[in-house]
């Protein structure tokens, strides 16, 4: 059994304030697209759902920046 595995091409949300991430996690419209919380400031997101996530975050009043 291997002790390491690679997650390739996954999208992440990274926040400065952990409270913002808690707010994002509790949003019903975003929940279907979110995966495991990796740390108190980062959470996995389905890469195919990035446009929907971006639109929802904007409608919540955030100005998320997108990095490749």
């Amino acid at each position: 059994m291997s002790v390491v595995k690679v997650h390739d091409g996954v999208a992440l949300i990274e926040v400065n304030d952990p409270l913002v991430l808690t707010e994002i996690e509790s949003d019903a419209a975003l929940q279907p697209f979110l995966g495991e919380r990796l740390s108190d400031q980062r959470i996995a997101v389905q890469p195919q759902a990035l446009p929907e996530v971006l639109k929802r975050l904007q409608s919540l009043g955030h100005l998320p920046q997108v990095l490749e």
Partner: peptide, 13 residues
């Protein structure tokens, strides 16, 4: 800068 979406990442677990 308070929220950043990383489009494609490579994570080693």
């Amino acid at each position: 800068e308070s929220i950043t979406l990383h489009r494609r990442c490579t994570l080693v677990e």
